[in-house]
Design a protein around this nucleic acid. Structure first.
Length: 501
RNA sequence: GAGCCGUUAGCUCAGUCGGUAGAGCAAUUGCCUUUUAAGCAAUGGGCCGUGGGUUCGAGCCCCACACGGCUCACCA
């Protein structure tokens, strides 16, 4: 070996010691090793055989197995050694004796195999004195050498920075973290299953968009070199999904990453997973029923119950969920009747000041109403609630309420003080839609998050879009609720981090 | 963007009043043939986040910066 190991030796004493051991192996990273059983399979085999044997005779069953995994504990006791190896199905104990392996192999196991290494073992199953099913070793091979020592076996890995930056360590050593991500996968599967069973068509729409839209947020910008044009990473896929409704698909959905160039917090990651679905001939009321049924279904499927425990509070997801009119809710919690100052941000601001409400100034009446919602309504909500009927000016893509043109048929879904979804009866009138975009341009002077003009989308609406209900759900937040995690970083495998110092 | 807290051995953490750096696990060397946080004995291992400052002397006090966490702000 003439490799330059200087880089690796800088990692310290323990890495250097492992490098020395590594050089003793002809094949520290063999192309393959024999593996016939997982840890769980081996244990099951023995339990089944044992049950048969005790019925028929009293002899212990003889079962040869070949298992492989990462060495996670090792107890060397002179001429015999106990250890545990771990694979994707769990742990199994191995037992090695000098008598069985011979001096050379036994010493190799003792001296050259380290915690963290992957090994393959062959032997027969037996039960130890303390009753643990174990593999009595006949032979073993190194499957892959770990030249960096693993984290501590008892306390695991706690340092949040290392846990997020080196998630593989977090996963390998903290089983409860593995559980969260297994459940995440099941939640997304269950969501798909729910929609697939109802004939929603899963589609894929562009991540790179020339005009960003479908939400009020700031985008990430990128550049296409050959076309020499700026493009945006999608902040939403809404406008593309609705083009598909125009095209005649009556139920579509997409589960994808959206990207928003905004603050990072325990509830916000710059890229996050969104589920959006659109349903022709449905309205926002139908979307409420769809939402509560879907979330309840997902909870029941992955947790076996519609009751969740989040942050120490019990929350019942059983439908139907509470419906709360936005204006009524604000009146109830602040005493302010938003309609008394309709459309007049200064008048509403004055009313709020008169009641000494703590609010930040907002560029428009609708935004101030939204601020009231965020400050005085949202934090009070524990059990799932649909807050519905929003101001027009913060809802440029929603259809107006027929009985009150100042408001739109829209709801947001809240659970545990957290906004988890947004839905409306889709605006399908191209003339009003273009007018709404123009109004957004006017707000845009004071508001960086105003919706951009999108004439190509208006062109789509000119072909006619049936009455349609649409829904967007922040899946990461649903996963937080169903796995009882307080930070979105704990449900995203590789959350965004600054470059290391 | 603001405030608060944190950063010490591979990991989990102590570190008193400012006086030459500690434990457990992990590692190395012995002993140990049914252990399971194995046990016993010995040993090695430190850019105390980085850079300045105060001081005879700084892990500790002061300033700046970096990274992380929480809260707030921003934000569906």
């Amino acid at each position: 070996m003439t490799q330059d190991l200087t880089y690796f030796k800088n990692f310290g004493e323990q890495v250097e010691q492992r490098l020395n051991k590594l050089s003793q192996f002809e094949q520290p990273y063999p192309p393959r090793v024999k593996r016939q059983h997982t840890a769980a399979e081996a244990i099951k085999l023995f339990e089944v055989a044992e049950a048969k044997v005790t019925e028929e005779s009293s002899e212990s069953p003889v079962i040869e197995v070949e298992v492989a995994g990462r060495l996670v504990t090792m107890r060397v006791m002179g001429k015999s050694t106990f250890a545990h190896i771990e694979d994707g199905t769990g742990r199994i104990q191995i037992y090695a004796r000098k008598n069985d392996l011979g001096n050379e192999r036994y010493n190799e196991l003792k001296k050259s195999i380290d915690l963290g290494d992957f090994i393959a073992v062959q032997g027969h199953l037996f039960r130890t004195r303390t009753g643990e099913i174990s593999v009595h070793l006949v032979d073993f091979q190194l499957a892959s050498k770990a030249i960096h020592p693993p984290p501590e076996k008892w306390h695991g890995l706690k340092d949040t920075e290392i846990r997020y930056r080196q998630r593989y360590l977090d996963l390998s050593v903290n089983p409860e973290v593995r559980d969260v991500f297994v459940k995440r996968s099941k939640i997304i599967s269950a969501t798909r299953q729910y929609l697939d069973e109802r004939s929603f068509l899963e589609v894929e729409t562009p991540t790179l968009q020339a005009i960003y839209g479908g939400a009020l947020a700031r985008p990430f910008t990128t550049h296409h070199n050959t076309l020499d044009m700026d493009l945006f990473l999608r902040i939403s896929d809404e406008l593309y999904l609705k083009r598909l409704i125009v095209g005649g698909f009556e139920k579509v959905y997409e589960i994808c990453k959206d990207f928003r160039n905004e603050g990072i917090s325990t509830k916000h990651n710059p890229e996050f997973t969104m589920m959006e679905c659109y349903w022709a001939y449905a309205d926002y009321q139908d979307m409420m029923r769809l939402t509560e049924e879907m979330i309840a279904y997902v909870a029941q499927t992955v947790n076996g119950t519609m009751i969740i425990n989040y942050n120490g509070r019990e929350i019942d997801l059983t439908p139907p969920w509470r419906r709360l009119n936005l204006a009524e809710g604000i009146k109830e919690h602040t005493g302010i009747d938003i309609f008394e100052s309709y459309g007049d941000v200064d008048a509403l601001w004055a009313a709020c000041q008169a009641k000494s409400l703590k609010l930040s100034p907002q560029p428009s009446w609708g935004k101030l109403v939204d601020e009231l919602l965020g400050e005085y309504l949202e934090p009070t909500i524990v059990n799932p609630t649909f807050i519905h009927t929003f101001p027009v000016d913060v809802s440029p893509l929603s259809k107006q309420s027929p009985d009150d043109p100042r408001m739109v048929e829209r709801f947001e879904m809240f659970v545990a003080g957290m906004e988890c979804g947004n839905a409306y009866s889709e605006l399908n009138d191209p003339i009003i839609q273009r007018q709404r975009f123009l109004e957004q341009q006017a707000y845009g002077q004071a508001d960086k998050e105003a919706h951009a003009m999108d004439d190509d989308y208006v062109l789509a609406l000119m072909q006619g879009m049936p009455p349609t209900g649409g829904l967007g759900i922040g899946l990461d937040r649903i996963i937080m609720l169903l796995t009882d995690q307080k930070s979105i970083r704990d449900v995203i495998l590789f959350p965004h981090m600054r470059p290391q110092a």
